[in-house]
């Protein structure tokens, strides 16, 4: 019992992340297109960090490297001190597009991670738990084409949560949602993170979203992406959009990004 409890506690804790001198380039018909240039940063276990930068600067590529979907051209990515070799079920990636499998019901989409690892028989209850968590229990048997954009993205979150992630990578997961759904989902993401204790990395180009969610903002330059600067957002949760401290920070970040006036 004690051992199991200890293990549960350990698995619930987030991982530490170390990105050291990572460069990456795409090969486009023989022409090398650099997207990441000597990127280095660390993320402490359990932290919520936002990666902020202009569209197409290479943030998504960085996230794919962290998830182990691709290997960097140079440099190392390590999780808890060990180099990332490939995808790991405890390091999940949520995409901008929910990418639900249209031929599977909501519940079977959420069950995907368990099924892929052969754990469905013993841990099926986690599917219901994850659906409960995102408030979609009533839609377990619905098909993806019957869902709204916000609901589909929640299913994608549930699908990721079933794997009990220790590293939660999000690639503009709220990018395609309408403004209201987006605000609700931001609050839910914070709650999820506080409850589960995973390490969260959020890629976004929305400064306000980054300020609402993250403890630290890493700002990237245009492609090829380099770390320009880091902001620490030392405000308690739940945060408020009109918090003067956040408003001031927002102006500062926008000015840095070259947006006139910053408002």
């Amino acid at each position: 019992m004690v051992a199991a409890a200890l293990r549960a506690e350990e698995s619930a804790r987030g991982v530490g992340l170390d990105v050291a001198h990572v460069s990456h380039a795409f090969d486009l018909k023989g022409v090398s297109l650099p997207v990441l240039d000597n990127v280095s940063f660390r993320v402490e276990p359990g932290a919520f960090v936002a990666l902020l930068g202009p569209s197409g600067c290479g943030k998504s590529t960085l996230l794919r490297l962290l998830a182990g979907l691709d290997a960097p051209s140079a440099g190392t990515v390590s999780v808890d001190g060990a180099g990332v070799q490939g995808p790991d079920p405890a390091h999940v990636l949520v995409f901008q597009d929910p990418t639900l499998f249209p031929w599977r019901s909501v519940a079977r989409n959420v069950a995907l991670g368990l099924e892929a690892r052969g754990l469905l028989k013993t841990q099926r209850y986690k599917v219901a738990e994850a659906l409960e968590l995102v408030g979609l229990s009533a839609f377990a048997d619905a098909l993806p084409h019957q869902l709204s954009g916000g609901m589909a993205q929640r299913v994608a979150l549930a699908r990721a949560l079933v794997n009990e992630p220790r590293l939660f990578l999000m690639d503009e997961p709220l990018g395609k949602l309408d403004a209201l759904t987006r605000i609700t989902m931001q609050a839910e993401l914070v709650k999820l993170w506080q409850r589960s204790g995973f390490t969260a990395l959020l890629v976004t180009h929305d400064v306000e979203e980054a300020l609402m969610l993250a403890q630290r903002l890493i700002v990237f330059s245009d492609r090829p992406a380099r770390v320009r600067t880091t902001f620490v957002v030392d405000r308690p949760y739940p945060r408020h959009r009109d918090d003067p401290h956040l408003v001031a920070l927002r102006r500062e970040v926008l000015t840095l990004l070259g947006v006139e006036g910053g408002s």
């Binding site: 979907l69 995808p87 390091h91 999940v92 990636l93 990418t99 499998f101 995907l112 699908r159 990721a160």
Partner: peptide
């Protein structure tokens, strides 16, 4: 994207062919 999703969730090659 289906393959990316399945791979990050821990899918092996056979799962990618048969289930994706």
């Amino acid at each position: 994207g289906f393959y990316d999703v399945a791979r990050t969730l821990g899918a092996k090659q056979s799962f990618l062919i048969l289930r994706v």
